[in-house]
Design a binder for these strands. Structure first.
Length: 564
RNA sequence: GUGCCCGUAGCUCAGCUGGAUAGAGCAACGGACUUCUAAUCCGUUGGCCGGGGGUUCGAAUCCCUUCGGGCACGCCA
């Protein structure tokens, strides 16, 4: 697994460390406790390829001016057998390193060797991580919040996979509890209304208003008639739920699949009731003295949750709350299935639940730091510059399916991952289908198609991508070439940072950047028709850009067309 | 009222575990196609990083405060 930036960074750190010890040993700098050396890429190109602020960091300890320390360190640096070509002290005390291009050529070779695996790293070390996302109520269609959560969760999972984690994608099916009761009541009310008229029964105030409930009952009646009218209410609801729930779950599965999201596990909430795990969890909490009884209900203590007030676990009617089931569910994730790390994606409106959940997890003896909750802000759709709420086709609230019909999977997934999860997202429906340069999806895909087209034409003339070892990559000297290579070399680091911050949006920006650098290169340098050695070197470069763009798009589950 | 998130260019956003002269895309304006895809490129214009304090060698970044926007505070999920 190639990661030249990592190699180079280590090399520089090692040079600094040796220089520091040497300076201490010969008394130029007093004994200091060496902090973690940080190497960064300066914003300003004139400041070299990499830089460190180590001299400023040890200023206090060493009791010398930062620039003075920097000069001493530079004097003691041994750069033989490294990529380092020049070192200088600059600004308030930065040490800037300029590298020779050999590391860039090594990066190109690495890309050609790794191919579709280029970018993969191993910071995860095979640790088991679960990403639980969408987990929409199966009482209706998927909405825009689910759409954002779906794109985000799936890509977080992919990033972690690329970073070397053993990833499980999971959907928690809320097929038990209160909302299923409400679902049943809603279905029943519509059933009766359809057969006996609107006035035959008052639709419950907290019932599900969606038209899909009526559609279900129309379908049911046309297949099964009115035979349930005589059936006792509880039984009738059970039958109707049993009819409609699997249909909804299937629709959710199908919708997510056409969105490019595939789950490893569909975990049933009901199974926690059936297996007795929920009961078991409640008993454990009781034994640990985490609960109290009050007004006929069972509560979990605020002190356990690190919260200000107690929360109900079992209602006075005996039905456990969602929270109780969620505690059992998380106990299952950590203690029954032994995940090392669990990531939940929740809409920002659930933020109040985070602290409670961590507290509850902690009360089960689980390190709450093993649970991360990614909160994502809500989505606003825009059409013709105005907020759009309704689907043009159905006249109902825009569902995931409507969105996919209107803009397609590629644009939807790309747009939802363009911004950090914590920022509000305005989704411009017009822009997403526009085939022009202001649409970033097309910009990136076009770069890929352009490369493929070039390679195809060259192939027609008998030029295939040569082995990187067989060409003189040092012929790549132009600024546009070197900048492109440098950015390609950074891909594994981009994966690392995305994984650590759980922000795939970093990768959409990265791939836009790579596409832009490629387009610049394309306009500055020709490949076909150039002198043979230069052409060969450039073919390697162009093909490497293709590999990187393709790998990123693949990771985001966005297509990389070869022709447009 | 209490808590969480967000305020950066005309618009949409990066940068936020402190670093050098605050970036990108779009929009606006001006250029580049007889040559591998102009769905492209090159250039120009554009900023009191919401305001005010503090911390220090250094603050968009950390702390306090204030203003503006969103959200949550159920025996809903």
């Amino acid at each position: 697994m190639t990661n030249l930036v990592e190699n180079v960074t280590q090399q520089i750190k090692s040079v600094i460390r040796q220089s520091l010890s040497k300076a201490i040993a010969n008394g130029e700098i007093p004994e200091v406790e060496v902090p973690e050396i940080s190497i960064e890429v300066p914003r300003e190109k004139g400041h070299g390829d990499f830089s460190t602020n180590i001299a400023m960091q040890v200023t206090k300890q060493a009791k010398k001016a930062p620039r003075q320390i920097a000069e001493i360190l530079i004097k003691n640096m041994d750069t033989s057998n490294t990529y380092i070509d020049g070192i200088e002290c600059a600004g308030p005390g930065f040490i800037n390193f300029r590298l020779n291009n050999a590391w860039l050529y090594a990066a190109l070779k690495g890309i050609q060797t790794d191919k579709e695996n280029y970018g993969r790293i191993d910071i995860g070390n095979g640790r088991k991580v679960m990403v639980e996302f969408v987990s929409a109520n199966p009482t209706g269609p998927l909405h825009m919040g689910n759409a954002r959560g779906g794109a985000l969760g799936d890509c977080i999972a992919s990033v972690l996979d690329a970073a070397g984690y053993d990833v499980t994608r999971e959907f928690y099916v809320n097929d038990a509890g209160n909302q299923i009761e409400k679902f049943g009541i809603s279905l029943e009310a519509r059933y009766i209304q359809l057969l006996k008229g609107e006035d035959a029964i008052v639709f419950p105030e907290d019932g599900y208003q969606g038209e899909d409930i009526i559609d279900h009952m129309k379908d049911y009646i046309s297949a099964n008639g009115d035979k349930l009218l005589d059936v006792e209410s509880a039984e009738r609801r059970r039958i109707l739920v049993e009819y409609a729930l699997p249909k909804n779950i299937e629709r959710i599965k199908a919708g997510l699949e056409s969105y490019g999201v595939k789950y490893d596990v569909w975990f049933s909430e009901k199974s926690l009731y059936d297996s007795g795990e929920l009961k078991e969890t409640l008993e454990i909490l009781k034994e640990k003295d985490c609960t109290i009884e009050n007004e006929g209900a069972t509560w979990i203590k605020a002190s356990v949750l690190g919260a200000e007030k107690d929360e109900v676990l079992v209602r006075n009617n005996g039905i456990p709350t969602y929270f109780a089931a969620d505690i059992a569910y998380h106990r299952n994730k950590f203690l029954k299935r032994n995940f090392d790390w669990v990531i939940n994606l929740w809409g920002a409106d659930h933020h109040g639940h985070v602290g409670r959940m961590k507290g509850a997890v902690s009360s089960m003896g689980i390190d709450p730091d093993k649970l991360d909750v990614v909160l994502f802000q809500l989505v606003r759709l825009y059409r013709n510059g105005e907020i759009a709420r309704m689907s043009k086709r159905t006249g109902r609230a825009i569902s995931l399916t409507d969105l996919l019909d209107e803009v397609g999977r590629d644009a939807a997934r790309f747009f939802f991952n363009m911004k950090a999860s914590g920022s509000h997202l305005d989704f411009d429906l017009d822009l997403a289908v526009k085939q022009s340069n202001d649409n970033p999806v097309f910009y990136v895909q076009y770069a890929h198609a352009r490369i493929c087209s070039m390679l195809k034409i060259l192939e027609g003339e008998g030029v295939t991508v040569p082995a990187a070892d067989s060409v003189n990559l040092e012929l790549l000297q132009k600024a546009e070439e070197l900048e492109l290579i440098k950015r390609l070399a950074e891909y594994p680091e981009e994966i690392r940072i995305s994984a650590q911050t759980l922000e795939p949006s970093r990768l959409t920006r990265y791939v836009m950047d790579v596409a832009g650098l490629f387009h610049s290169f394309y306009n500055a340098c020709r490949v076909k028709g150039e002198e043979e050695n230069i052409m060969k070197a450039r073919v390697v470069l162009v093909d490497s850009a293709r590999i990187v763009i393709k790998n990123v798009l693949q990771l985001l589950s966005i297509s990389a067309p070869e022709r447009m």
